[in-house]
Each structure stands twice: as structure tokens, then as C-alpha cells.
């Protein structure tokens, strides 16, 4: 897969026009600043605040997990890890994450995925969001190289690849930064990234280290 297919940074022709239109629309929209609505409330008031629509208690959303067994147009056939089977419909409103926000043609058979969406009458799931090969692992940093971190997860060795321009680090809860030079061997780290089925390594999206 070429990196450009995954990074929406190099638009061409129509897409460029579309982005300019969207940019102008966004800048013409409302500006929202100010104090938090829910964060400042006490526990009871926070619970009493009305829920937004994305509320699983109302069972509006469905969830699918598994590996892509086949791709039929924009329909993903997904074999669940516990023997179940899902059909996940990608639409032109579906977000697809595979290390970056990407498009449907980046999904390959053998990929693992989590999908959130709405169940259709025919039993398929119209996906709102699909996360492909995403993992979020608690690791220990065992080694640091120029393009990789040697990680131990549950004492299994895992190679974490540093992806230039993408991999970001957070230190003790700080904002995510492109500066990876404060990572240390022996640190506990939470690594969020995209698993690569071909070589079982992980492309790192973000690594958060504690004290």
C-alpha cells in the first residue's frame, strides 16, 4: 500500500476543489469557545444532563468484531472471533481508520476490524465507523531504534514501527507531540496503532508513557 493512499494530505483535482469549498464553509461556521457544559457539574447533575443520540442504552448502534474474510463491493464479510459472522456495509459516510483516516480500498482480506454502525433489516450493519487492525496495548519499552520501538506486551515481544509524520507521543498526560526523544527503555507505555498481519508488527499511531 502506498503511503499516499492512507494519508489524505495530497488531494487532486475535484477533491482539492471540494476541500476549498469545505474550508470556506467551516470558517464561515459558528465559533464555539467557553466553559465546559458537563465537566463542571457534580456527579448527580452530570448524570441528570440529557443524553445525546449516540446512546447504546437505546440500542441504536450495533458493533462487529472479527477478521475480514471477503470483500464484496462495499460489503465486508467479517468472521467474528467467537464463530459469529457479520456483513459490514461501507457507505460514503463511513469513516475508515487504518493508522490514518483512509478509504475503503485500504481494507484487505485478513485484516482485523471493529465496526460501529446501525443494523439494517437484512441483518447487515451499515457502518458509521470502522477501525481496521487497531490495537491499544499496555507495553514495556525494551529497546529504541531509529525506526522502531522494541516492546514487550504480556511478555510477548512486539515490534512497534515509528511512522514518520504520524507517530506521536504523550508524556505523563501531556498533549500529543511529534517529539519521540523522551521515550526511555524500561518505561510502561500504552501503544495505540495498526497491527500489520503480514509481519505481526504494529505501526504506532500514539504512544503514551507514564511516570
Amino acid at each position: 500500500m502506498s503511503p499516499n493512499r492512507n494519508t489524505p494530505d495530497a488531494p487532486e483535482g475535484r477533491e482539492l476543489h471540494r476541500r476549498r469549498f469545505l474550508s470556506a464553509a467551516a470558517l464561515g461556521g459558528a465559533t464555539i469557545v467557553g466553559a465546559s457544559a458537563l465537566g463542571g457539574l457534580d456527579a448527580d447533575a452530570a448524570f441528570a444532563a440529557p443524553s445525546p443520540s449516540l446512546d447504546p442504552a437505546i440500542a441504536k448502534t450495533s458493533f462487529a468484531e472479527g477478521r475480514v474474510a471477503g470483500i464484496n463491493g462495499s460489503m465486508l464479510e467479517v468472521a467474528g472471533s467467537h464463530g459469529e459472522f457479520h456483513r459490514v456495509q461501507l457507505t460514503n459516510a463511513t469513516s475508515i481508520w487504518k493508522l490514518h483516516p483512509t478509504t475503503a480500498d485500504a481494507v484487505e482480506p485478513g485484516d482485523g476490524l471493529y465496526a460501529r454502525g446501525v443494523e439494517m433489516p437484512d441483518g447487515s450493519i451499515a457502518a458509521d465507523a470502522v477501525w481496521v487492525n487497531i490495537v491499544n496495548l499496555h507495553c514495556t519499552i525494551r529497546g529504541i531504534g531509529r525506526d522502531r520501538l522494541e516492546l514487550a506486551h504480556n511478555n510477548h515481544a512486539v515490534v512497534g514501527r515509528v511512522v514518520k509524520g504520524t507517530t506521536a507521543a504523550s508524556y505523563h498526560g501531556s498533549a500529543l507531540s511529534s517529539d519521540l526523544s523522551r521515550l526511555r527503555i524500561g518505561q510502561d507505555a500504552q501503544v495505540l496503532g495498526a497491527w500489520r498481519p503480514k509481519d505481526d508488527s504494529i505501526d504506532i499511531a500514539r504512544v503514551s508513557v507514564g511516570r
Binding site: D9, A37, L54
Partner: peptide
């Protein structure tokens, strides 16, 4: 983590679809 997200969250259904700098 912004107030804008709180305001728009009930409308948003997808994850991030696209991003660009200008």
C-alpha cells in the same frame, strides 16, 4: 475535549474522515 465537540457530538456518527491544513 472542546466545547465545540460537546455541541456537535449528537450529530456526529463517524470517526475522523478527512483532514487538511490551509
Amino acid at each position: 475535549r472542546s466545547l465545540a465537540w460537546e455541541a456537535a457530538a449528537p450529530v456526529v456518527r463517524s470517526g475522523l474522515r478527512d483532514h487538511w491544513d490551509e
